[in-house]
Design a binder for these strands. Structure first.
Lengths: 210, 210
DNA sequence: CATGATAGGTGACGAAGGTCACAATAAGGT
DNA sequence: ACCTTATTGTGACCTTCGTCACCTATCATG
């Protein structure tokens, strides 16, 4: 299986790089809702997503969590790169949003390939770049916008990423990810329903139009 | 002058890279409080700080601003790298906090040097990495902490960066940078003064102990 | 179909922080 | 010294959001 999925998820990599990844990387599987990394962990490897979907959270000392973004096949966890390179412990959590297959690249190869494969260094740069923009937009939302707008944005993002109008989450889960409380989310969703923006079902939210 | 300041600010660069920077880069001076870039601008170059100090802000559509971090000599603006590379317009503002000298590197060299000079690609990665961490910590503060803690953190950062206990800012300026209002900052500062953490002067705050 | 268990709804209340109006102090120039 | 202006202090009030208490609706399972 590895023979086919690496070129599929990372077609831009040189053939030799793909082979090295296959040789040196360690494939791991995670079922939906399983944690790929937890806060406080040290990394000695970075993770490339082969297939599935991964949710990245920030977590503070008191256990509050906070959704940041999704990782899709062909992407890598920029945080794990940062942490691995600086020998720092993670302050993030990653959870499988679907059944997910990843390949873990040990730190030493990560560094070595930077000089050896142009497509790898390109990939690392692009990863930082896109996550950087993601973070900036996250900051905008929490700094400048209220909970109502953040909720809409959150739903929109899920709609795009999951490619469906039916978001399979309950109010409590959304509240956790926005670092808010269930009641507040319930109230705001109700208001959105009155405006015809969504339709509320048990354990799912159907997006009509945002 | 260029002959001396480039190696001084960027000692890790290869000799040839330093020479290329000097040849292709354009030196620019900014006086305290002058803007280096404004929101909405397109970049065709990235900026290296030679000396002085630069403040980086995020700005939203309604003109609210929001302090993110300082750039010191030897550092580069990661945002300008992102924007230049993606041909997107800036959503940030940069302002000289002291009289500042920078050198602007056109996009084409930025790309070319990535493959040509190991120290350059190393530098770009490190720049992303450290700004990334800066952003994460910013997110933590606005997501999980109240205004009081954010204010203390803000003052601490200024103390370290400026290397002095006398922060030359008035309440209005601080409020803008924390995206709050003058009255709130005044009240919180007063409270901190009562706790013996700071001493308030007109147009300046003296840090006693945080 | 009875009974928990889980999800969602709602009102009351409080704390944080934004806004408004205006008073009280400096600082600086003339 | 006096006037002007910029800065800071303060009380009243409002909105948003978090929290508590408790209720209702829905689902799954025996």
């Amino acid at each position: 299986m590895e023979l086919s999925t690496i070129p599929l998820a990372f077609p831009a990599f040189e053939k030799e790089l793909q082979l090295e990844i296959q040789e040196q990387g360690e494939i791991r599987f995670f079922k939906t809702d399983e944690q790929l990394m937890r806060t406080g962990q040290y990394f000695r490897s970075t993770m490339l997503i082969l297939n599935g979907l991964v949710k990245i959270y920030r977590e503070d000392d008191d256990g509050n969590e906070f959704f940041m973004y999704y990782l899709q096949p062909g992407q890598a966890c920029a945080l794990s790169m940062v942490c691995a390179a600086e020998h720092k412990k993670s302050a993030i959590m990653a959870k499988a949003a679907k059944d997910t297959e990843i390949i873990a690249i040990p730190l030493e190869y990560m560094e070595e390939w930077m000089g050896k494969y142009k497509s790898w260094s390109q990939f690392v740069i692009t990863t930082y770049r896109s996550r950087f923009e993601e973070l900036l937009s996250t900051i905008d939302h929490i700094a400048f916008r209220g909970m109502d707008e953040r909720l809409e944005f959150y739903l929109k993002k899920h709609q795009e990423t999951l490619g469906t109008n039916l978001i399979p989450l309950n109010h409590q889960e959304i509240a956790n990810e926005l670092n808010s409380s269930r009641e507040v989310i319930s109230r705001l969703l109700k208001k959105m329903e009155q405006f015809g923006k969504v339709k509320l079902n048990r354990n799912a939210i159907e997006i009509i139009q945002l």
